[in-house]
Design a protein around this nucleic acid. Structure first.
Lengths: 210, 210
DNA sequence: GTAATAATGTGAAGAATATCACATAGATAG
DNA sequence: CTATCTATGTGATATTCTTCACATTATTAC
């Protein structure tokens, strides 16, 4: 599928295009031009065409893109035409909220394991039916349940040690909500979600104009 | 303070540097070189120097950077040497978790208002002492309480209408957790936090290698 | 006071990314 | 079947961002 080196920015935008296209689909829009899609996504029309061009030709000249087709094409490009199993590590405020949050399921992700160290929490059942395991069991359980992606929602202080265990358990993808830079081997891909960084950026813009 | 046009990426990295420096400060490290700091932040040493060079000279040649000084300098650069008032809109799973999450307070941000539309929630008191207002009162309340930044944690469907009201209330900075692209006038700066985009990026990497 | 050392600050080179502009090709109407 | 129209796909161009490499300058030791 992939022949050239694809910019990370392209991958992220594809995700945004897909989101917008799925909304259009719900509104029963059949066909859309790069120009209109670009406006809705807040990007340049040529950007969309270039992004897609990395992977093939998906439009019809003089017409535009068939919305439902393009959604499926992007899903295939991103590897989303299959289920991905998630494990949540850390069931404090944030972890618990995320696991109950509908967006993961809506996009085809499935929680198959959840971990914490608090004896009060271990053994408890979550609304989605999962039972919380102790972090000590992490390595075994994620192998057993074929977890593909680990989500770290622990305090910053435990994040690195959890990441180490995830790697030992064979995980190659980590979504990290802890506000630290975690170190992993090259085989493992980490994405960070850090909202205080975003807040700082807003503070900067408010202070010194755009 | 700002003379050239600063890359957004630089601003985000300054935030990361600051975070790491604050940790170093707790470990009582006095001085650090760009090389060592770079390793801890996962960037190139020249990058750090260039980023800082946009704003002035903060290091000592042959020695490095005084950690506590640099933290303060970056705070000033980002406009963090003052309090910022936040309003949370939407107190579902995510909004409630975020407002209880210590990281905002830790970095000097203060919640001064909270809103929801659910009559069950309006009037209730949050653990931090705030009383939940109805979204109808949004415009007035945020003016009254001098809110600077609005955090949208509503479902996607309400995000745009909330954003409109925030703008009407004079807000120029929005942190958006809803998975939609919201449209605002140029005077208002929006940052999006969208973890499904990050998850999609991980899925892509797992599918087609790095 | 001088030399050696070390790590900054920065101009220049390089890489990556985004935008422009137009040739191309599918669709539709006459 | 031909002409017209429209929006894609893409080579060329422009821009933005990152890395290199080294001259510069504070510090320390002799």
């Amino acid at each position: 599928m992939k022949f050239a080196k694809i910019p990370m920015a392209t991958i992220n935008r594809l995700s945004i295009y897909m989101r917008t296209l799925q909304e259009l689909l719900e509104d029963e829009v059949d066909v859309i031009s790069s120009e209109r899609l670009a406006k809705q996504c807040g990007v340049n029309p040529a950007q969309i065409r270039k992004d897609l061009a990395y992977f093939g030709e998906f439009g019809v000249r003089g017409v535009g893109y068939r919305v439902s087709d393009l959604v499926n094409q992007i899903k295939e490009i991103l590897g989303l035409n299959r289920p991905w199993n998630l494990a949540m590590i850390g069931l404090g405020n944030l972890g618990s909220a995320l696991i109950r949050h509908g967006n993961f399921v809506k996009h085809g992700y499935i929680f198959t394991a959840a971990f914490d160290t608090d004896p009060q929490k271990v053994g408890k059942r979550l609304p989605n039916g999962l039972t919380i395991n102790h972090v000590e069991e992490l390595e075994d359980v994620i192998k057993e349940r074929e977890v593909h992606i680990g989500i770290i929602a622990t305090p910053a202080s435990s994040a690195q040690s959890v990441a180490n265990q995830l790697v030992l358990g064979g995980i190659n993808g980590i979504l990290n909500f802890a506000p630290v830079q975690i170190q992993v081997p090259d085989c493992c891909h980490v994405e960070n979600v850090d909202f205080t960084i975003k807040l700082d950026a807003i503070a900067y813009h408010l202070s010194f104009g755009s």
